[in-house]
């Protein structure tokens, strides 16, 4: 494969990210250090992995509001099984992954078979997953996890910088998702289904199967994110995933993926997640209160969607 310049669609987010980095590098000499950038990656990895699933769903013109809560449930299942029921760690992790994937399947089933709008379906499963998490955990945090369960939170040295394994896993997953979406037929079908479902159906694409697959894969992503979240925090937290829920949608939208489906890239979502991460990290470094970080995130999202709207209106030939 030839190395190409980033496409115009990912150029915007890339520029925004570089500008943000430049701004914070000027304002704080601690920003552009290896350790700090590694910290940004570590802070971004959970949102980043959820955002892969979220991108898939949004590419089909859907949205998944349940992602963070499903992740929290997955994390709870993994940690509780391992700590309280002495289930071997790999099996406990597999069970957590299975639960999040099943939630994806449930979302997909309700969207494709019962034909409910994704917004409503996932609003429902958001609450269901949240309630189950609270009931199952008794609202108690699970601590004293076996070491192997948090292995992905461990680090390795690159020069003098400690890089966390989980961040590498995230980057690998982005690589796989980018390849699948751009180089394989099922990946292109995800775009076609989001772009014009009727045309996709008439072209012989099993559109319902594509949709179902997307929700199931998204559920699997949330399971992996659960493992990363557990590894990062070192506990099973029943209140995990609450900020991640909307952060992922923010990341996807900032990354240039259209909420109307059919346009966007997962790489853009990674950039989007990094933009949010860099803003949070940078604003903290220069001592701005966290309320302003939320404010900035909100403004960024609206700007990103407005750009999407304008570019689409401008680019369309009637």
């Amino acid at each position: 494969m030839k190395l190409r310049l980033p496409s115009p669609a990912t150029l915007g987010p890339l520029l925004a990210l570089l500008l943000a980095c430049a701004f914070f590098a000027i304002r704080s000499d601690r920003f552009l250090t290896g350790d700090n950038l590694s910290l940004v990656l570590q802070q971004v990895m959970v949102v980043g992995v959820i955002a892969i699933g979220q991108t898939l769903v949004i590419l089909t013109a859907g949205v998944d509001l349940s992602c963070g809560m499903v992740m929290a449930l997955g994390g709870m299942v993994m940690t509780k099984l391992a700590v309280e029921h002495q289930v071997p760690v790999p099996l406990a992790i597999a069970c957590g992954l299975a639960v999040t994937t099943l939630f994806g399947l449930l979302n997909g089933f309700l969207v494709t078979r019962v034909k409910l709008p994704p917004f409503i379906v996932t609003l429902g499963t958001l609450n269901i997953a949240f309630a189950i998490t609270q009931l199952y955990s008794g609202a108690q945090t699970v601590t004293e996890l076996p070491e192997s369960m948090t292995a992905l939170g461990g680090t390795f040295q690159v020069g003098s910088t400690a890089v966390v394994f989980g961040a590498v896993l995230m980057l690998v997953l982005y690589g796989v998702a980018t390849f699948a979406l751009s180089q394989t037929a099922p990946g292109r079908h995800v775009y076609a289904v989001g772009n014009n479902p009727e045309a996709a159906r008439l072209a012989g694409i099993a559109t319902q199967r594509v949709l179902l697959g997307v929700y199931v894969l998204a559920g699997a992503c949330y399971g992996i994110a659960a493992l990363l979240s557990v590894a990062r925090t070192g506990v099973g937290d029943p209140n995990a995933g609450q900020t991640e829920n909307l952060d992922t949608i923010t990341a996807v939208v900032l990354g240039g993926t259209s909420l109307f489906g059919g346009r966007g890239t997962v790489l853009g979502s990674l950039l989007g997640a990094l933009i949010v991460g860099v803003f949070r990290n940078g604003l903290t470094l220069i001592g701005v209160s966290s309320v302003y970080q939320v404010l900035v995130t909100g403004i960024l999202v609206i700007l990103a969607v407005a750009t999407d709207q304008f570019s689409r209106r401008g680019g369309r030939v009637a």
Binding site: R188, A192, N196, A199, A200, A203, G204, G262
Partner: peptide, 26 residues
């Protein structure tokens, strides 16, 4: 093969992708 009135194409995708939609070559 049927050509539909309402232009059954995926507008954001390329011409080549539309021509081979659902029949991609590997």
């Amino acid at each position: 093969e049927t050509v539909y009135q309402d232009l059954a194409v995926a507008p954001a995708m390329t011409i080549a992708e539309n021509l081979f939609l659902g029949r991609e070559l590997r």
